[in-house]
Amino acid sequence: MSWIDICAIGDIPLRGARKIKTALGCVAVFRTDVEEVFAATNSCPHKGGPLSEGIVHGQSVTCPLHNWVFDLNTGQAKGEAGAITTFPAQVREGRVWIDSTSLVARSAA
């Protein structure tokens, strides 16, 4: 794993999200709790809705376009045949870190 320091935890609002640009498209970073983050593809597999704009609740996000609900642990859409790709992310000493190797691995796959 190769962790990249993305931002301070305070840069993402509690129960909110921000996106980061990668060569493979945008990745959303969700802050589900005071010191809890998840990262996943920003685009909803249904109609491409921007998930970083959705309502974040528990460890899930709801797509703002048609209310598909994704479990951020697995990326699986609840009650739908669809999923988003998740990436390892963590909070350490007030900073948000994301694993860059997983972003590359996705391109190789």
């Binding site: 990249i4 840069d11 993402i12 980061i20 990668t22 060569a23 590359v104 391109s107």
Partner: peptide, 12 residues
């Protein structure tokens, strides 16, 4: 704005 632009890092 996006939090970060990893376009370069991710492409390595």
């Amino acid at each position: 704005q996006p939090l970060a632009d990893l376009t370069l890092e991710a492409a390595e």
